[in-house]
């Protein structure tokens, strides 16, 4: 099953998006969050992103959704730290966070594969990536 990682500057946003998306399906979707800094400030932390990825990683693939600019930088850093074989199955998508997570979870519940989920999510991109 494809997994989802939510990266937000705020742990509350990350967990809220997870809560909302989980409401969409009774299936248990592999969904991990990385939000805020270690000491509870707003921000993102590449180490947390990396452990979130590792906690839900499978060869079926991972899609990562993020909120604002520097969350993307932390995410890219985290991916660079993964073994190459895992890097190849981890995709950052530039869909809006809440809508993207909801869509990802529903698509996964439909047993869609990683490649087609990425396509669906990329169609929602409104140009958020720098």
């Amino acid at each position: 099953m494809v997994g989802v990682v939510i990266v937000s500057h705020s742990l509350k946003i990350a967990e809220g998006a997870k809560e909302l998306a989980s409401q969409m399906t009774p299936d248990r979707i592999p969904l991990a969050v990385a939000g805020g800094t270690k000491d509870g400030r707003l921000g993102t932390d590449a180490e947390q992103v990396r452990s979130a990825i590792e906690s839900v990683y499978s060869d079926d693939g991972i899609v990562i959704l993020y909120d604002l600019g520097s969350a993307l930088m932390s995410t890219e850093l985290a991916i660079e730290e993964l073994p190459a074989i895992q890097q190849a199955r981890v995709a950052v998508v530039h869909a809006p966070l809440v809508e993207g997570v909801v869509t990802a979870v529903v698509e996964i519940s439909l047993n869609k594969n990683w490649e087609s989920i990425i396509v669906t999510l990329q169609e929602m991109d409104f140009g958020k990536a720098p």
Binding site: Q23, M24, T25, P26, V106, S109, L110
Partner: peptide, 13 residues
């Protein structure tokens, strides 16, 4: 809304 909507698109798919 929420799960009913998900159920709807699951069926449609």
């Amino acid at each position: 809304h929420a799960r009913p909507a998900a159920l709807f698109i699951q069926t449609a798919n």
